[in-house]
Design a protein around this nucleic acid. Structure first.
Lengths: 91, 91
DNA sequence: TTAACAAATCGATATTCATCGATATATAAA
DNA sequence: TTTATATATCGATGAATATCGATTTGTTAA
């Protein structure tokens, strides 16, 4: 993982709503529907969509189309790679 | 570590210069002098000072006065705590 | 005590980002 | 095909941030 991706991931995690999104999506056994996420947050649909996009572009989430719905889950591999970078900072 | 600190740390790491600062300071055996850091970066003294402040306020760095100089080192405990939060996101 | 130096702070400016309502796109249901 | 629903995108706006030069503060050396 290069510095550019580390920067992108850090930026994506540097927002309270996006942290909550990550926690919420991770709590699910499997995928979480976008429409359910929107109901859970006190933000407009377009703003939630914006935040999900940031997390997707940082590869922190994986999304899949499901009819006219969209579902998300956490990309654990990328989080693991990010943790490896942080481990270097402890070296 | 609460969400507010995770957010602060993430924000602090979400900048290319600050990531470089963390790497640079971590490479040192012990402390790294501020004046040396300033020489190494193509940024004004006030800007470097600003970035170091962000990292300090996120507890990612520890600083110590040394005469009229100032020296820094990485706070490995906080990085460890941050990694623990990320581990939860993998759960 | 004065001069030199290191680092922090201030004030200004340009850029980035979060947020919203409105609109567009795509899919499913009637 | 028309209508309804889910999500993405657009355009605007206000807030936060990065950056700089100038100044201030605190410390050492002359």
């Amino acid at each position: 993982m290069d510095l550019k991706q580390v920067e992108k991931i850090s930026k994506a995690l540097g927002d309270p709503y996006r942290l909550k999104l990550m926690e919420t999506i991770n709590k699910q056994q499997d995928w979480l529907q976008c429409s359910i996420i929107i109901e859970m947050f006190d933000l407009s649909q377009s703003t939630v969509s914006h935040h999900l996009k940031q997390l997707l572009e940082a590869d922190l989430l994986i999304s899949e189309k499901d009819g006219r719905n969209c579902k998300y889950k956490v990309n654990k591999e990328v989080i693991s790679g990010y943790k490896n970078f942080l481990t270097q900072l402890e070296g």
